[in-house]
Amino acid sequence: MNKKRAFDVTTLPGFTFIAILSFVLLYAPIATLVIYSFNGGNSVNQWGGFSLQWYVVAFNNQAVQDATVRSLIIALWASVISTTVAMMAALGTTRRGRFKGQTAIYMIINQPLMVPEIVTAVALLIFFSSVKIATGYTGLGYLILAHSAFCVPFAYLPIKARLEGMDTSMETAAADLYATPWQTFRYVTLPLLLPGVIAGAMLAFIISLDNVIITEFVKSAGQDTLPTYMLGQLRRALTPEVNAISTALLALTVLILIAFVFLTKKRE
């Protein structure tokens, strides 16, 4: 009598409740962080009205400025390098049928996804510290190199997915219409692949921008990126300034993700 609701086979008791709870639990802490970044008070513990003061503080902080610039330089280089080599590898591993050693290539490319980051970080620390001694060079190159390598699988996956969804008849048609292999790539394959390439570059950019552990181990003195700067700040007290930086980074990530969703959706 009280069972007026239709019996729905897709619902299981309590599942919807736990699911909604999961979403709330996922977003509540982030929301707190974001809200407190606009705190007008001087302490993290008390709400003192809406204010952008901590953003101003962060913006005027020379260390934050330097770390931001460093983070962006590394992320830009890492995304360009990793996307370029990932695109070449994707072209080499998808459009010409199976060949010997393909599995080995997949394994090496996806290696950063399998090995715990702390282990890679330790390995790079050991390796680069001897290179630093041997060459005397202590610039950003090590971080760019390490980030580029780490970002390759993230750039590779969307490009590979796009290539696998692309008909090889396009390249056949181009060859039929007198295009040399290079012209075929330049005028047909690359334009069609571009959304995948941009998507891959965006993911690589985010991954590089967010990286903490490898950066922490590889960086030389005075080479803090935003995440390692924030981690360093934590040794002292939690400041609303860190909240402000986090919120700014979060906003950037969400923006890139939205662009990514639109890019990968188009033309499908």
Partner: peptide
């Protein structure tokens, strides 16, 4: 396939897989 994958492999072996052996 190997030729096109080579830059990625060199990068990864140099700055990810290789150092694991060290």
């Amino acid at each position: 396939g190997w030729l096109l994958s080579a830059p990625a492999l060199v990068l990864l072996v140099f700055a990810a897989s290789g150092p694991l052996l060290i």
